[in-house]
Write a protein that binds this DNA or RNA. Structure first.
Lengths: 348, 348
DNA sequence: CTGAAAGCGCTAACAT
DNA sequence: ATGTTAGCGCTTTCAG
């Protein structure tokens, strides 16, 4: 069978040099289009290189240049569509700038997260982007000791060391909550994420803050917790539904949670938004195809990934333009049909 | 500001050797726990290494070992939840085996796909996994010329060169179609993917085949095309709905398409499954939270990713156990509530 | 047990 | 315009 042998030694510039009767440095020059080599020899060399299927060794090159043209991206899990969108944005501009990206999941396990960062350090990545880390501050220290530029996405960094791009969670939650209040709801609830993420804290804070100032709102507003997935959202919604004073409007930590809530409400035989309004956060691609289409706060996920990579690229360029440390996006309120005025019957 | 300087030179075994008053080769040995070094010196060396934050340079090591402990993964886009799940499985076992993964998206652009493969080759990845390529056979040639082991996922390879893991699309489509027929439907339709993927061809073939043998089924069955996304599915479903002889059951190329179809049906004021039954293919995590929960054919996405990486690892090990070339999974029919018996009114 | 020396494939002076 | 030499940080003989 003609399967390629893994260990087969790739051809090197020396091999080409021999064939072309020149020194290996001339080959090196020719292959990088240096003007210092005679057009004819250059052509000859390139020809041999092409026909022999030569490919520079990025590893050898990196050893001398001290640059790998490589970045590391840490996510909790790529199976979360939010992270996937962000990574997609990162990858896009990384590719445009000639960087390759290492992807590693932490599975929200601090040990594993430290592990992948160490592995990135050994691989001498030029930069690191950490997305939605659930790991705390001890880790922050490690990162800053690495002397590798790091950009955080949606991750509060108490240290104030690194660069970050994030969404304004508080403002976003306010917008959603005001929208709900504006519709006439008075019994609101929040379904959070139980892992104590800063983003959850902030969204809840925005929610509570608006509730505090609304005389008509029932206080304290109910708060229950999911785990950021649809299953968690469904289960949390179940708790809300089981109480005798169920809310008429629910704001969910994210769209996945909201989808679970939607599902639980339907299973319970109630309608959205007639019986209960539901709002999410993120605006995942799938959210406009929910039933009913989900009202949510759109985060520019792709754009945030892109910006993070652009910052990194700046940091890595010969003369960095000193990007802003904290880059905060404000999301857009997307009103669809999962939120509506509370029905009279329910309200009384 | 104390931001780490990108260019700062990492410390090397030579630095440690100097501090420990030994040669750099002794340091190299000690750090890899060679028994050839005296416990005391070894301890001393490790101490210095730890306290100084030393990290081996994987690039220098790779240069001599001719192994990068790195694999490259090509996907069309990571924003497709199917790919994300697969990559998640790959990453998981890669991590367990000590490999890092490069992720690159082709955006279904052949030129870009060739580009990322070349970049993988230059980076001297030990192996490559190609997921759901939309690129044809010319590319097949490139890959086999690379002398790097390649494993394909859900990608027919006419050449028969490389290893592959895939789902049995034909059998899966048959199961879905038989389920629909068994419910009593006679007017079925298929919403395909217009990009001519082999998987689309196979699913359609399985569908058609079952229809052919069913005397009660209306023939030919309607076939319209989406693009594999929910938006495409919604649009294609719209076409079906516009005709005066709309089907009572629709089988969709994948779950994303099915979600779009669901949405279009609801927009049209019809109910699922009372008016129209809808079935998908994949069983994405979100599919059980659709309204109604989606009947579909479950692919072990994560498992397929895992298996692909396991095969690669075998191929890369010192004494490969010669894995099977073609590894075909058969999916599970997951019956939820988006399919049901056709209503009498509609049937007449 | 430890050190000296060679070499992995490339780039970058430094000569010529 | 080209060749020679050195060196990137590590592993690996080969001597002691």
């Amino acid at each position: 069978m003609s399967f390629p042998v893994p260990g087969r030694k790739p051809i090197s510039i020396k091999d080409i040099a021999r064939q072309a009767n020149v020194s290996h440095s001339t080959v090196s020059r020719a292959l990088r289009n240096s003007p210092l080599v005679h057009p004819d020899t250059a052509e000859k060399i390139r020809e041999i290189a092409t026909s022999s299927g030569y490919r520079v060794s990025a590893v050898a090159r990196s050893l001398v240049s001290r640059r790998t043209q490589t970045i590391g991206v840490v996510v909790t899990t790529i199976a979360d569509p939010f992270n996937a969108e962000v990574v997609s944005g990162i990858e896009d501009v990384a590719n445009a700038f000639g960087y390759s990206v290492f992807l590693a999941s932490s599975q929200s396990d601090p040990v594993r997260e430290l592990g992948v960062v160490h592995s990135f350090a050994e691989r001498r990545v030029d930069g690191i982007i950490v997305n939605s880390s659930r790991v705390g501050s001890l880790y922050q220290e490690l990162l800053s000791s690495l002397s590798i530029p790091v950009v955080f996405i949606n991750n509060h960094n108490p240290g104030g060391f690194a660069y970050s791009v994030s969404i304004d969670d508080v403002a976003g939650a306010r917008q959603i909550t005001e929208h709900l209040l504006g519709l006439g709801h008075t019994r609101l609830a929040y379904i959070g994420d139980r892992f104590g993420l800063q983003s959850n804290l902030d969204r809840m804070a925005g929610f509570q803050d608006v509730i505090e100032r609304a005389p008509q709102a029932r206080r304290p507003a109910r708060v229950v917790y999911g785990d950021g997935t649809s299953a968690g959202g469904a289960q949390a919604m179940g708790e809300l539904l089981a109480s005798n004073q169920a809310p008429t409007a629910v704001f969910c930590y994210n769209d996945r949670t909201a989808q679970g809530a939607l599902s639980a409400i339907h299973e319970h035989g109630l309608r959205v938004p007639e019986d209960i309004s539901v709002a999410g956060f993120d605006d995942l691609p799938v959210s406009s195809f929910c039933h009913p289409p989900l009202t949510t706060l759109r985060q520019p996920m792709n754009g945030m990934g892109r910006q993070a990579m652009e910052i990194l690229e700046q940091l890595l360029s010969r003369n960095p333009k000193a990007p802003d440390m904290a880059n905060k996006f404000v999301g857009d309120l997307i009103i669809r049909r999962s939120t509506g005025v509370p029905s009279i019957g329910k309200q009384l």
